[in-house]
């Protein structure tokens, strides 16, 4: 396993080096997001401006050949992170902190260059395709080289889509085919970093398995994959690490083994609660809700729902600390 991974890394590094002579700080780290905050400026009443901070102090990294799953409750900022990396946030969004891609800051200009080519998004559903255009043509449109048609056919072949499938409209595709078309679109530009936004919900088990296999295959070829999901089960099948989001921040980053060992090895109380709420475990929820961005607690964001809380938790937001091969944002974690 280990040797296989190193060979993967060296392979992808070689290709990166070939294309650019830039020096890389840590070549294994494809994407590093550090202290990212995203806030929206809204008008509350009349001309009164409101700064709504939806992501704060978020840290996550993706290496080449690695799948990082991002799990967390709905509204915890998972999709916004993807949009921030791709640079497709709405104009009233303000982004602070750093995003580094291949060792260099990912500026707006670089985002424009890489978006859809090296960094690509596998969107959530078939709704993201143009409903009035044949899917083959749509994939061709995303390819910016001359031999678009040929390349599209190659990509379709790779994902077991027949020639005729390219002549279909999105509404004629079955759920599984639609997923394959979306993956084909994403990889046709020679992607190095793939962001998959909720790739599995509402699909039957065979299509889920197929989608996950595609992501794993891409990772094995040296791509970095960021899989945004709330399906912990799916994440456990293929991911190398899992980052857990809560109310716009990372509360834990854990290697996948910790999830497989029955939840005992998990560091943050929220992650444990998430684990216990799965139908195959206790199926028992914890009380309370994720706080809304307008009404965040002053200290630890999870404090109001936490069974480990002490007076100290209310004072200060805990920093991310390294613990047992992972990271956690909790002062009580052991």
């Amino acid at each position: 396993m280990n040797t296989k991974q190193t060979s993967k890394f060296s392979h992808s590094n070689a290709s990166i080096m070939n294309r650019s002579t830039e020096s890389l700080a840590n070549p294994e780290e494809l994407l590093v997001v550090k202290n990212l905050s995203v806030s929206f400026i809204q008008y509350a009443k009349g001309l009164k401006q409101l700064n709504l901070e939806v992501i704060c102090d978020l840290n996550v990294s993706v290496n080449s050949g690695e799948i990082v799953a991002i799990v967390g409750s709905s509204g915890s900022g998972k999709s916004l992170l993807a949009h921030a990396i791709l640079g497709i946030l709405p104009t009233n969004a303000k982004v602070t902190g750093t995003i580094r891609y291949q060792g260099q800051a990912l500026t707006t200009e670089r985002q424009k260059v890489f978006r859809g080519r090296e960094i690509s998004l596998i969107p959530q559903s078939v709704n993201y395709l143009d409903p009035l255009m044949k899917v083959g043509e749509q994939v061709q449109n995303t390819i910016r080289t001359k031999d678009a048609k040929q390349l599209q056919q190659q990509v379709f072949e790779r994902y077991h889509l027949s020639k005729e499938a390219g002549l279909l409209y999105p509404f004629q595709l079955s759920g599984g085919m639609a997923r394959r078309v979306l993956v084909a679109t994403a990889v046709s530009g020679g992607a190095k970093l793939i962001i998959a936004d909720e790739p599995t919900p509402g699909l039957h088990p065979e299509v889920v398995a197929e989608t996950l296999a595609h992501l794993k295959e891409l990772a094995n070829q040296g791509c970095g994959v960021m899989m945004i999901t709330h399906d912990i089960e799916a994440a456990m099948k293929i991911a190398d690490r899992i980052a857990v989001f809560y109310a716009g921040t990372t509360v834990e980053v854990a290697p996948i083994e910790d999830f497989k060992e029955g939840g005992e090895a998990l560091r943050h109380p929220y992650t444990r609660a998430l684990w216990m709420a799965l139908p195959e475990n206790d199926f028992k929820p914890i009380p309370g809700f994720q706080p809304t961005p307008t009404d965040l607690p002053p200290g630890c964001l999870f404090e109001p729902r936490c069974h480990l809380r002490t007076a100290e938790c209310q004072c200060k937001k805990p920093e991310m600390q390294d613990l047992r091969g992972g990271q956690v944002r909790c002062i009580h974690a052991t």
């Binding site: 409750s73 709905s74 919900p201 709330h230 609660a273 998430l274 199926f283 028992k284 929820p285």
Partner: peptide, 16 residues
Amino acid sequence: EMTTMLDAITQAQIWE
């Protein structure tokens, strides 16, 4: 598919 789009804790809350 009542809870497909929701996270595990919310799912468990509603099902309970």
